[in-house]
Amino acid sequence: MTRDEYDETREGREQAQGRWRGRGRVGSPGGRGRGGWQVADLPAADDAEDWFRGRLPSAWFSEVEVTVDREEILVVGTLAEEADGAEAEGRISRFRAETRAERIEIAEEAQSRYQRKVSWGARLGASGSLFTHVAAPVMTRLRQPERRVLDTLVDAGVARSRSDALAWSVRLVGEHADEWLGQLREAMAEVDKLRSDGPTV
């Protein structure tokens, strides 16, 4: 295991330990688990980007991008300095090491507020790195025609396994259907809003 891999494992473990404080574990009776988007029992995270912009030290980033899904809040910032190539990679590594303790503290606050794991990344020039991130397993059942698509990708060397082929296919759809996916997310958000405004049973 490399030093970066060890650091990422340790950092993720430390953040996860803080995740269960306060409201209870996600998915447990004391927490706010979520089985599907139609089960609206996770706290809303519409204001997550604003919260992080207000909570992060102003000296860290010149720009911040916050992406949210059901399991994770990914915070990727552009470092407020200039560098390229190996120098940029070195400065990203230094930033990661120097800010680890404070990022864990901020992540624990956000995880208590939003009941999602917080992951971090940084960019500088053309370089970028994700420090910690969630690779959430997704179970699915496929019929033979769909399995054959995955097997073709594996046999052609595009993917190492069916799971890799499925992940590759999802990335491909995401790259070529951004507008449609954006409209779908907006429609889902409107449904969630209407549900939250409705009467409580």
Rank of each mutant, 00 (worst) to 15 (best):
D164I: 00
P43Q: 08
R23Q: 13
D46A: 15
R3L: 11
A187I: 05
R21A: 12
Q144K: 14
W60H: 04
V39Q: 12
T67H: 07
V138Y: 10
R147C: 13
E49D: 15
S28H: 13
R147K: 14
T99Y: 02
Q183M: 05
G121Q: 10
S129G: 00
V76N: 03
A44C: 03
E98A: 05
L194G: 00
V68Y: 07
P199H: 04
E8F: 09
R19W: 06
L142N: 09
P43L: 07
K117Q: 14
S161L: 02
I106D: 02
V118F: 03
G31K: 10
E63K: 13
S161K: 01
D7G: 00
L194Q: 14
T152L: 08
T132G: 02
E186M: 07
H133R: 12
L150N: 04
R116D: 04
F52G: 09
A159M: 04
V64F: 05
G198S: 15
G128I: 01
D151W: 00
S163Q: 13
A159R: 05
T132Y: 04
E63P: 00
D69V: 06
D47P: 03
D84C: 05
D151Y: 00
D164V: 00
D178L: 02
Q38D: 14
L130M: 13
P29H: 06
E108W: 10
A187F: 10
P145L: 04
A101T: 12
A135G: 06
R141H: 11
Q144W: 12
V154M: 01
T140E: 10
R21C: 01
M188W: 03
T132A: 03
W168N: 05
G24V: 09
V76L: 09
L130Q: 12
R160F: 06
R147G: 01
G12F: 05
W168D: 08
V134D: 12
R143N: 11
P199T: 06
R141D: 11
D46T: 15
G121L: 08
R34T: 10
A97Q: 15
T140A: 15
T140I: 13
A159W: 02
V68T: 11
T152H: 08
E8W: 07
V64K: 05
G157R: 10
L124K: 09
D192M: 07
A126S: 15
M139G: 14
Q111K: 00
G22F: 04
A101K: 05
D197N: 11
A48W: 08
V118Y: 05
D197S: 13
A126M: 07
T78F: 04
D41M: 09
G35S: 15
F61N: 02
L124M: 11
L74Q: 08
V76H: 01
D192Y: 04
G90P: 08
R3A: 13
R123T: 11
A110Y: 01
R100P: 01
S127N: 10
S127M: 13
E82L: 12
H133C: 00
A167R: 12
L194R: 13
R70M: 00
V201N: 08
V39R: 09
S196W: 02
E179V: 10
I73R: 11
